[in-house]
Simulated assay, not measured.
Amino acid sequence: MVGRIVFHGRWVAILLTLVLASACSLLEKSARVEAPVHDLAPGQFVWLPERAPAGLVEIVVSLASQRAWVFRSGTLIGTSTVSSGRRGYESPVGRFEILQKRKVHRSNRYENAPMPYMQRLNWYGVAFHGGRVPGYPASHGCIRLPMQFAEKLYGVTELGSFVFVADQALHSPKEALNLARANINAPMGPERRRARGAG
């Protein structure tokens, strides 16, 4: 009789452990997806590409929040702090597409400054690239990303990937994606459209 009680007790303990582990895993994934924007310190990011291994990539940037969200197949796979254009060099807002990609690139406008993992957003010198992210707008108009995040983002995008840059604060991934989807057919200005032969 005692032996049977111990045997059943072990199975109950194993089952409880499995149930708790599963619940913790689900809670952890949920917390990562819906984490508020203020949880990341300048230069920090979260990258979870396994949440959506394939599909179209959409990128949303909030200048007011200094944040970027990356979605694949509508699922959040990355969140990062950014540093956009400072006063007098404000980053443009609206709908963009990635026009050009270069792992090694230097600025044609600003003293040959390095722009690693450059992904061009327009033909006037604005791009995503790796660089210093101090927690406030500090660039000449580009959207700087933490270096490791810039490399990871470079690896999942293609020419023509959708980008939406908003000037207002966005407080959750869901809000960011909804805003981008509402503007998915917004017109792009002539400086944003892909230009043949432009360098």
Rank of each mutant, 00 (worst) to 15 (best):
V2N: 11
V2F: 13
R4L: 11
I5Q: 11
V6T: 12
V6K: 15
H8Y: 15
W11N: 15
V12H: 02
I14F: 12
L16Q: 06
L18M: 14
V19E: 07
V19I: 14
L20V: 11
S22A: 15
E28R: 12
V37E: 09
H38M: 08
D39R: 15
D39K: 13
L40T: 05
A41L: 15
G43E: 01
W47Y: 10
P49A: 10
R51E: 11
P53A: 11
P53K: 11
A54S: 12
L56Q: 11
V57E: 00
V60M: 09
S62W: 01
S62Y: 03
L63S: 00
A64W: 04
A68P: 00
W69Q: 07
V70L: 07
F71K: 06
R72M: 10
S73W: 06
T75W: 10
L76R: 08
I77K: 09
G78A: 14
G78E: 06
S80W: 06
V82K: 00
G85H: 03
R86N: 06
Y89F: 14
P92D: 08
V93C: 06
V93M: 06
I98W: 01
Q100R: 14
K101I: 10
S107K: 05
N108T: 08
Y110L: 05
Y110K: 02
Y110Q: 02
N112T: 04
N112M: 03
P114D: 03
M115H: 05
P116S: 11
P116Q: 08
Y117Q: 10
M118V: 00
Q119H: 08
W123I: 07
V126S: 02
A127F: 01
F128Y: 12
F128E: 03
F128G: 04
H129F: 06
R132D: 15
R132F: 13
P134R: 04
P137S: 08
P137D: 04
A138P: 00
A138N: 07
H140Y: 07
H140F: 07
G141N: 01
C142Y: 04
C142Q: 03
I143A: 03
I143F: 02
R144P: 01
R144Q: 08
R144A: 12
Q148D: 14
Q148A: 13
A150L: 08
Y154H: 14
Y154E: 07
G155D: 15
G155F: 12
T157Y: 03
E158R: 12
G160T: 05
G160P: 02
V163N: 07
F164P: 00
A166N: 06
Q168L: 12
H171M: 00
I184N: 07
N185D: 14
N185Y: 12
N185K: 11
M188R: 14
M188D: 02
G189C: 03
E191S: 13
R193G: 01
R193M: 09
R193T: 07
R196P: 11
G197Y: 09
